[in-house]
Design a protein around this nucleic acid. Structure first.
Lengths: 186, 186
DNA sequence: TAGCCTAGAGAACGAACGTTCTCTTCGCTA
DNA sequence: TAGCGAAGAGAACGTTCGTTCTCTAGGCTA
């Protein structure tokens, strides 16, 4: 089997297990069983658990932002697109295995002690914030930098609130708030 | 030494260690060393690590909300009080050991697998949301239920954003957003 | 002083962790 | 067919985990 195929298989299994149970609660043996890749090959692809965690996060970042962009760009009008972010969040929140933001979870769990993971989390949040900035700029909003920061706060707040309450409605509340912020003059 | 004194000593040490390093990364031996309480006494007070974690969260909930309320109630005018929440958050974010929301961190780390912890986290968030509802009601805002939800999302988003970026400014952005939501007519 | 309860110090337990090593099998080349 | 390198299966390594147990010391009552 191809090396990149094996890597994807490992990343698939590891990402799902890490997301569901947390990083520390999942051992390498369990990733071996779930992926069907032997420990030897596993450590050939990822020389330590830390690098595997970071690789999971970086791949998830690309996939997550890709899926968000795909959904947002279905809206033809630039003015609708910032709000479409929250519609996409709502759909995500209703998925049965939704368990919050993998990056926030990893940050809270690893925090100090794993600089590579912290970097991956920071990079993800910076990329998301940059994407939101592009959306509000294209929408012609005033003070786009500040608005992008506010939308980023609403996105993170909606994710954590939805995860903890178990209700996807947080996306609607955040969307309502975003609509007010986008059109302050009413 | 009094039993409640010992319990407080254990909770002090455990809460600080859990918050700094995460729950799973801190062993009972480390809590023994930090608190100066023997393992025997420790297990007499808290029959398992899980109950200790839950006790830490429940005590922290009371302290956290108490400190918030103390700060907010310095404002004489009801209309200023919802925004004072975000001023208090800013001060919290600038503390050197700030590392995000202990409840969100615990939820992300334990998630499935510890119902008692999940309950404590849900209860905390519900209490905070209820407190915000009281504030916006006293401020005479329209649609207080929806507004309380929105402020709760802003609070959680500000906490996580500040933790990950390492900058307390998220509190200011959230405060600006809250001000717009509180006075939609301009 | 003698006996008893409590508590401290820390060893001990079985399990699980991340990581490495051994043994075997198998496909390839000469 | 003989020999070689790669890889799978899983045992083994040393460590750490949550929890319990042992041993000892010291303060109480009679």
């Amino acid at each position: 089997m191809n090396t990149t195929e094996v890597e994807q298989q490992v990343l698939d299994a590891a990402e799902a297990l890490f997301y569901e149970h947390g990083v520390q609660a999942v051992g390498m043996d369990r990733i071996r069983s779930a992926s069907g890749v032997s420990l030897k090959r596993l450590y050939q692809c990822f020389p330590s658990k830390d690098t595997l965690v970071e690789a999971c996060l970086r791949r998830r970042d690309r996939r997550w932002r890709g899926a968000l962009a795909d959904h947002v760009e279905l809206r033809p009008a630039d003015r609708d697109r910032p709000l479409a972010v929250f519609d996409w969040l709502y759909e995500w929140f209703t998925e049965p295995d939704f368990r919050g933001c993998a990056f926030i979870n990893a940050f809270g769990e690893m925090g100090t002690g794993s600089p590579a993971v912290v970097d991956a989390v920071r990079d993800h949040k910076a990329e998301v914030r940059g994407y939101l900035l592009g959306l509000v700029r294209a929408a012609g909003a005033e003070a786009p930098e500040r608005l992008a920061d506010q939308l980023a706060v609403l996105v993170d707040g909606a994710i954590t609130t939805a995860a903890i309450t178990g209700e996807p409605d947080a996306a609607c509340r955040a969307r309502d708030a975003a609509a007010v912020l986008l059109a302050p003059a009413g």
